[in-house]
Amino acid sequence: MMGNLLEHMGVDRDRLHFSWISSAEATKFVDVVKEISDKVRALGTTKKFAKDYTK
């Protein structure tokens, strides 16, 4: 429901990821983090929910 609300507010769904990873699944954790990083990198810098500290 949180993801749905964020998406409803216009946040890109690819920026939010839910996974179930056991503490014993180190390789899965690495894979998931890699996958998310790649996805978000491809999307570029967001202006949503990001404070502009240059002002």
């Binding site: 216009g10 890109d12 949503k48």
Partner: peptide, 9 residues
Amino acid sequence: DPETRWDHF
């Protein structure tokens, strides 16, 4: 579309 939704809020 997502951008319009964001602008709406």
